[in-house]
Protein backbone atom coordinates (compact mmCIF):
# COMPACT_ATOMS: atom_id res chain seq x y z
CA UNK A 1 0.00 0.00 0.00
CA UNK A 2 2.38 2.67 1.28
CA UNK A 3 1.32 5.15 -1.34
CA UNK A 4 3.40 7.73 -3.00
CA UNK A 5 4.63 9.39 0.16
CA UNK A 6 6.67 6.38 1.19
CA UNK A 7 7.73 5.18 -2.23
CA UNK A 8 11.39 4.33 -2.67
CA UNK A 9 13.90 6.29 -4.75
CA UNK A 10 13.57 4.62 -8.16
CA UNK A 11 9.84 4.26 -7.84
CA UNK A 12 9.36 7.85 -6.81
CA UNK A 13 11.37 8.98 -9.81
CA UNK A 14 8.93 7.12 -12.06
CA UNK A 15 6.03 8.67 -10.23
CA UNK A 16 7.39 12.15 -10.72
CA UNK A 17 7.94 11.46 -14.39
CA UNK A 18 4.37 10.29 -14.77
CA UNK A 19 3.10 13.28 -12.81
CA UNK A 20 5.07 15.59 -15.03
CA UNK A 21 3.55 13.95 -18.10
CA UNK A 22 0.01 14.46 -16.79
CA UNK A 23 0.60 18.11 -15.98
CA UNK A 24 2.34 18.68 -19.29
CA UNK A 25 -0.64 17.16 -21.04
CA UNK A 26 -2.62 20.16 -19.79
CA UNK A 27 0.07 22.62 -20.81
CA UNK A 28 0.91 23.51 -17.18
CA UNK A 29 -2.24 25.59 -17.12
CA UNK A 30 -3.54 26.67 -13.72
CA UNK A 31 -7.12 26.34 -14.80
CA UNK A 32 -6.59 22.64 -15.43
CA UNK A 33 -5.99 21.96 -11.73
CA UNK A 34 -9.13 19.84 -11.36
CA UNK A 35 -8.63 17.62 -14.43
CA UNK A 36 -4.97 17.21 -13.48
CA UNK A 37 -5.92 16.05 -9.99
CA UNK A 38 -8.53 13.72 -11.50
CA UNK A 39 -5.97 12.14 -13.79
CA UNK A 40 -3.46 11.76 -10.99
CA UNK A 41 -6.05 10.10 -8.81
CA UNK A 42 -6.98 7.73 -11.62
CA UNK A 43 -3.32 6.82 -11.83
CA UNK A 44 -2.54 6.42 -8.12
CA UNK A 45 -5.90 5.76 -6.49
CA UNK A 46 -5.59 8.66 -4.07
CA UNK A 47 -3.83 11.97 -3.62
CA UNK A 48 -1.00 12.15 -1.12
CA UNK A 49 0.24 15.37 0.38
CA UNK A 50 3.53 14.97 -1.51
CA UNK A 51 1.75 14.66 -4.83
CA UNK A 52 -0.42 17.67 -4.12
CA UNK A 53 2.59 19.77 -3.21
CA UNK A 54 4.29 18.72 -6.43
CA UNK A 55 1.24 19.77 -8.42
CA UNK A 56 1.23 23.16 -6.70
CA UNK A 57 4.88 23.63 -7.46
CA UNK A 58 4.62 22.66 -11.10
CA UNK A 59 1.58 24.84 -11.70
CA UNK A 60 3.15 27.67 -9.73
CA UNK A 61 0.16 28.08 -7.45
CA UNK A 62 0.09 28.20 -3.63
CA UNK A 63 -0.27 24.76 -2.06
CA UNK A 64 -3.13 26.27 -0.04
CA UNK A 65 -5.11 26.59 -3.26
CA UNK A 66 -4.60 22.96 -4.12
CA UNK A 67 -5.62 21.89 -0.61
CA UNK A 68 -8.66 24.17 -0.79
CA UNK A 69 -9.80 22.62 -4.04
CA UNK A 70 -9.24 18.94 -3.22
CA UNK A 71 -11.17 19.24 0.02
CA UNK A 72 -14.09 20.94 -1.71
CA UNK A 73 -14.91 18.18 -4.18
CA UNK A 74 -16.16 14.86 -2.94
CA UNK A 75 -14.48 12.65 -5.50
CA UNK A 76 -10.95 13.47 -4.38
CA UNK A 77 -9.52 11.02 -1.89
CA UNK A 78 -6.79 12.05 0.50
CA UNK A 79 -6.36 8.60 1.99
CA UNK A 80 -5.71 5.24 0.36
CA UNK A 81 -8.80 3.16 -0.26
CA UNK A 82 -9.51 -0.46 0.53
CA UNK A 83 -9.62 -3.32 -1.92
CA UNK A 84 -13.41 -3.12 -2.13
CA UNK A 85 -14.71 0.38 -2.59
CA UNK A 86 -18.35 0.22 -1.54
CA UNK A 87 -20.61 3.06 -2.53
CA UNK A 88 -24.13 3.12 -1.19
CA UNK A 89 -26.53 5.20 -3.23
CA UNK A 90 -28.62 7.53 -1.06
CA UNK A 91 -30.55 9.16 -3.88
CA UNK A 92 -34.20 9.95 -3.20
CA UNK A 93 -35.47 6.89 -5.04
CA UNK A 94 -33.13 4.65 -3.06
CA UNK A 95 -33.98 6.52 0.15
CA UNK A 96 -37.70 5.82 -0.12
CA UNK A 97 -36.82 2.21 -0.89
CA UNK A 98 -34.99 1.90 2.42
CA UNK A 99 -31.41 2.59 1.42
CA UNK A 100 -30.67 3.92 4.94
CA UNK A 101 -31.43 0.45 6.31
CA UNK A 102 -29.07 -1.07 3.77
CA UNK A 103 -26.36 1.39 4.71
CA UNK A 104 -26.89 0.67 8.40
CA UNK A 105 -26.53 -3.03 7.76
CA UNK A 106 -23.25 -2.57 5.88
CA UNK A 107 -21.90 -0.36 8.66
CA UNK A 108 -22.82 -3.01 11.21
CA UNK A 109 -21.30 -5.80 9.17
CA UNK A 110 -17.95 -4.24 8.39
CA UNK A 111 -17.77 -2.00 11.42
CA UNK A 112 -16.91 1.32 9.79
CA UNK A 113 -18.69 4.57 9.06
CA UNK A 114 -18.97 6.47 5.78
CA UNK A 115 -15.66 7.68 4.47
CA UNK A 116 -13.69 5.14 6.47
CA UNK A 117 -11.57 2.15 5.52
CA UNK A 118 -11.42 -1.05 7.52
CA UNK A 119 -8.21 -1.77 9.44
CA UNK A 120 -7.44 -4.72 7.15
CA UNK A 121 -7.70 -2.39 4.13
CA UNK A 122 -10.38 -4.57 2.65
CA UNK A 123 -13.35 -2.19 2.58
CA UNK A 124 -13.83 1.50 2.07
CA UNK A 125 -17.37 2.75 2.56
CA UNK A 126 -18.83 5.83 0.94
CA UNK A 127 -22.24 7.17 0.08
CA UNK A 128 -23.30 8.94 -3.08
CA UNK A 129 -26.32 11.11 -3.81
CA UNK A 130 -27.64 9.14 -6.79
CA UNK A 131 -25.94 6.98 -9.38
CA UNK A 132 -28.94 7.30 -11.69
CA UNK A 133 -29.92 3.65 -11.85
CA UNK A 134 -33.09 4.20 -9.88
CA UNK A 135 -34.95 1.17 -11.22
CA UNK A 136 -32.47 -0.96 -9.32
CA UNK A 137 -32.67 0.91 -6.02
CA UNK A 138 -31.44 0.50 -3.40
CA UNK A 139 -28.10 0.19 -5.08
CA UNK A 140 -24.69 -0.65 -3.73
CA UNK A 141 -21.66 -0.39 -5.96
CA UNK A 142 -18.56 -2.42 -5.26
CA UNK A 143 -15.68 -0.97 -7.22
CA UNK A 144 -17.44 -0.49 -10.55
CA UNK A 145 -19.99 -3.27 -10.25
CA UNK A 146 -23.66 -2.56 -9.57
CA UNK A 147 -25.60 -4.57 -7.00
CA UNK A 148 -29.24 -3.66 -7.32
CA UNK A 149 -32.44 -4.15 -5.32
CA UNK A 150 -30.46 -4.62 -2.14
CA UNK A 151 -31.84 -5.58 1.23
CA UNK A 152 -30.32 -6.68 4.49
CA UNK A 153 -30.10 -10.34 3.51
CA UNK A 154 -28.46 -9.58 0.19
CA UNK A 155 -25.94 -7.32 1.93
CA UNK A 156 -25.12 -10.16 4.25
CA UNK A 157 -24.49 -12.51 1.34
CA UNK A 158 -22.55 -9.90 -0.63
CA UNK A 159 -20.15 -9.17 2.20
CA UNK A 160 -19.69 -12.86 2.94
CA UNK A 161 -18.89 -13.40 -0.71
CA UNK A 162 -16.34 -10.59 -0.72
CA UNK A 163 -14.68 -11.91 2.42
CA UNK A 164 -14.58 -15.41 0.93
CA UNK A 165 -13.03 -14.11 -2.28
CA UNK A 166 -10.29 -12.51 -0.29
CA UNK A 167 -9.28 -15.62 1.63
Amino acid sequence: MGGVGSAGGGESFLIMERLEAIIKNYGFEKRALIPILQDIQTEYGWLSEDLLKQVAQRLKIPSMDVFSVVTFYKSFRLKPIGKYFMTVCLGTACHVREAPEVLGEIQRKIGIKNGETTADNLFTLETVNCVGACALGPIVMVNNEYHGLMNKNKIDQLIKRLYAKDL
Binding site: P62, M64, D65, F67, S68, F72
Partner: peptide
Protein backbone atom coordinates in the same frame (compact mmCIF):
# COMPACT_ATOMS: atom_id res chain seq x y z
CA UNK B 1 -1.75 32.47 0.85
CA UNK B 2 -0.82 30.94 4.14
CA UNK B 3 -4.45 30.26 5.06
CA UNK B 4 -7.52 29.35 3.10
CA UNK B 5 -10.90 27.68 3.23
CA UNK B 6 -11.09 23.93 3.19
CA UNK B 7 -13.99 21.48 3.04
CA UNK B 8 -17.49 22.78 2.51
Amino acid sequence: NSVGFIQR
